[in-house]
């Protein structure tokens, strides 16, 4: 953590401390709703994905992680075990048995879903996470204090932590290739996908496209766009020929996830009432016991 950002953090804390009563109301509002009408997203068509894992390689290359040789990704043995994204691979592809009307296995790319109402942004106590207008959810390594609240809050268990690093460990997750998209490029995984199973476009368009595909190929898809409504909507959405629960997608409601983490956090800290009342209670007990002592002494 750099000195500057520590100072920033302390400044923020001091400000919050100074204006507890005034500012606590704004703290409860959570991340500002900056969802743009033409925010971007990715539609993952798992019926088109061939499980070549080129996206894994491209992602590592784009994020300066050790990637190895692209040809080595043709080895399909690795798909025999289920993997999760971690600090060495921000996205992974898992393979499941075939779905309806198909002899082919179902391959599912896993990465950050870039929620419309991200729980990580809301849970982060130092504001290291932010939701951007183009849909991406990113984090600022320099501000992160390593509390790992984001990991607990994420409904998809995405943020990973560099546990093996003793010094300056980082939270790692897909950043929707924000550096690339700023330059007008598409995300690295989308760019390399040989079958364009990953379609990058405006989220509104993608929902329309996904609905159209389901309508026109009812034999090919289950009637569900995962991510359209889950936890209030996500930037990454999935189509499949198998129930999503069978593909190890979490079963989630349509309520935005921050609601849960926020209500816990804000419940504890709301208006600083619980801590203040605790101190008041303790103070009261102290006062009573002191007074009792005094009275006792007076009687003596």
């Amino acid at each position: 953590m750099s000195g500057k950002s520590r100072r920033d953090f302390l400044k923020t804390s001091a400000l919050i401390g100074a204006g507890v009563t005034g500012l606590s109301a704004t703290a409860k509002a959570g991340p500002k709703n900056i969802l743009s009408e033409d925010r971007m997203g990715v539609l993952v068509d798992t019926t088109a994905c061939v499980g070549c894992r080129n996206c894994e390689w491209a992602c590592k290359e784009a994020h300066n992680l050790p990637a190895g040789n692209l040809e080595s990704y043709e080895d399909r043995k690795i798909l025999e075990t289920k993997r999760r994204p971690d600090h060495t691979a921000l996205t992974v592809v898992n393979e499941y048995s075939s779905g309806k009307n198909s002899n082919l296995p179902v391959d599912v790319k896993v990465q950050c879903m870039h929620c419309d109402h991200p729980a990580c942004v809301s849970a982060c106590i130092v504001g290291a996470f932010s939701k951007h207008e183009n849909g991406s959810v990113t984090w600022d390594t320099d501000m992160c204090i390593g509390c790992r609240y984001c990991m607990a809050a994420c409904p998809f268990q995405i943020p990973a932590f560099e546990y093996d690093k003793a010094l300056n460990p980082k939270i790692m997750k897909c950043d929707f290739c924000i550096e690339r998209t700023k330059e007008g490029k598409v995300p690295a995984c989308v760019s390399i996908c040989p079958v364009e199973a990953l379609t990058y476009g405006s989220r509104t368009d993608l929902v329309k496209i996904a609905r159209d595909r389901i309508k026109r190929n009812p034999d090919r898809y289950v009637d569900h766009i995962f991510g359209e409504y889950e936890v209030g909507g996500t930037s990454w959405m999935y189509l499949s020929n198998k129930e999503f629960a069978e593909l190890e997608f979490p079963k989630l409601g349509e309520k935005p996830a921050p609601g849960v983490s926020e209500s816990i956090q804000h419940g504890i800290f709301a208006y600083f009432v619980p801590p203040v009342s605790l101190y008041a209670l303790l103070g009261g007990i102290m006062w009573i016991s002191k007074r009792r002592k005094e009275l006792d002494e007076e009687i003596k």
């Binding site: 088109a48 007008g184 490029k185 598409v186 989308v190 760019s191 996908c193 040989p194 079958v195 364009e196 199973a197 379609t199 990058y200 476009g201 368009d205 993608l206 496209i209 159209d212």
Partner: peptide
């Protein structure tokens, strides 16, 4: 790959 109409796959994808 980066195009206006993404309803059909690009040539490589197709």
């Amino acid at each position: 790959r980066k195009r206006e109409n993404v309803s059909v796959p690009d040539l490589k994808g197709a």
